[in-house]
Design a protein around this nucleic acid. Sequence first.
DNA 1: TTACCTCGAGCTCA
DNA 2: CTCGAGGTAA
Length: 673
Amino acid sequence: MPTRERALALRAEIEEHNHRYYVLDAPLLSDAEYDCLFRELQALEAAHPELVSADSPTQRVGAAPLPEFAAVVHATPMLSLNNAFDDAEVTAFDRRVGEGLAIHGDLDYSAEPKFDGLAVSLTYQNGILLRGATRGDGATGEDVTANLRTLRSIPLHLQGSGWPTLLEVRGEVLLWRSDFERLNSQQREKGEKAFVNPRNAAAGSLRQLDPRITATRPLRFFAYGIGLAAGTSLPATHSALLDRLAEWGFPVAPERRRVKGLAGLLGYYAHIGGQRALLPYDIDGVVYKLDDLAAQEHLGFASRAPRFAIAHKFPAEEALTELLGISIQVGRTGALTPVARLVPVFVGGVTVSNATLHNEEEVRRKDLRIGDTVVVRRAGDVIPEIVRVQWEKRPTGAPEFNMPTSCPVCASKVVRNTDEAVARCSGGIYCPAQRKQALLHFASRRAMDIEGLGEKLVEQLVDSDIVRTPADLYRLGLLALANLERMADKSASNLLSAIEQSKQTTLARFIYALGIRNVGETTARDLARHFGNLDRLLAADEADLLRVPDVGPIVARSIRQFSGEPHNLEVIEQLRAAGVVWRDVEVLASTASNNTGKVFVLTGALPTLTREAATQMIEAAGGKVSSSVSKKTDFVVAGAEAGSKLEKARSLGVTVIDEAQLLGLLSVAQPVQ
DNA sequence: TTACCTCGAGCTCA
DNA sequence: CTCGAGGTAA
């Protein structure tokens, strides 16, 4: 057989066995027989490098390391699902779906386990794996193609036929528990650190810059849906779509089922719950999706999650531990937060030793006392929470918790407004804790972006009284930094140059950096845009401030309080004197105000602009971009394959425009900065 | 909130 | 080798 044909045959055969092993879980060959084929192909390709192709199974061993991961903008955002924690919430979901579709009687759902891994997106062009990306914040993720290529359960090219020319498959990367155990014993043998749970091990493996390391980690993939498909028609139901994905070579959960109505959903939940410990991988619940894809489209999305699907989560794992004490954290605004210090306990896959208690009321309600035995869980997957106290184990004489009446850091009086739950230290800038937080905020990435000024450094700078206000940062010299820990020549000069660089900023960033209460990034931008320069903002009275879009009485009062404080004005003067500058934003001209406050909704794929670019342009012109169509929407910008938003716009009589019309609208108001 | 990866640089010991 | 900072993910 000619070499070329032999290579192709070997590839096909190896892929087939990969598929049988990793996807169907039904191998035909022993590992040794498989290795034999694999080595033959490797040898062939080594002898004939021109035969090597990116979709050859030998390429799964991992390409050369990358300097960094590139950003990937998702064609359609990778949203998360709403959660249901009990039967009542599932019942409500089923009722909402029925009402939304005006259907009485049982609905058909597709139900599947909810894998505990990381969400990824795989893009195939003409059947070839083109790109793999992490979910990121839903809009933008990271390009981890080289790493995902090494997963044998991910097809490098699609099988079967009838696949779209452009296909984006979404699914979960995870480790099976048995593979995780094996990986950890290998790690220990090599003298490296073991991972604490399969999810983190999978996440860590995927974030390796060197794909050759990823290749040695037994990661798996399960597909659960698609983000995009162009060039062919798809099945009418989600369950048929999953079957189709299986035909194309993707692993899909064998536990998936079609179920009918609420009873079917709850029955499935109970069934999978019973199987949970027997499954080879970790799951944290089950997912229900309305099966009919057209009906899904009809229901559409509410804010950040689809209306047609929900995750029914298993109850969070709980553990017993002891409350060692309650410490008080002082925030940037002086807010005092009680934090439970716990005897470390492993729960929900991590070791928990702290849990925020939010405020005094919360501690009272749970009646926590030092020395109590408490039930701890991780609520909503992440935040540790004290569920309750085991009263019977309470040590005798344990005193009630009281919020301190003076700040634990600066001893200033603690005040609490009658209508608020939070107690605050009244020390303001005299409180070192508040100063530290204010400085960290000032230096943070979204504010002045002073790289290298982190927690430990701020701690040292404030404690040694080298820095009291943000303006002091700009007076720092090599000498002042000389005696600090971990701050030798190189670090010091890097810090100074980062501080120097931060002097060039924007008005919006600067306003945000000031840390005015209730003024976050968005409000800071609104203020910068409205007033155009800082002096006008500082001189504004409440009435002026209320004219800014989205500024209400509370925000207006906070700003007035800030600018009425001479010390704040002084620091601002010092900052300007030190050379902090920004280009004043021109107040939008009257022609531009055509778009001011107008609400745009983007739907479908625009011919030339990305969603991000369109959003930026609209915002720069004073408009707003919203994710869902309502009566308040002024324009719906529709692109190719616009879906339910377009229908909704028509039914509400909202003006629908295309990209060209959008550009026309915006062109009268060119972005100012 | 915790766990993980990665980087640059400081510290430590030969 | 260890630390601090900065990033990501759930």
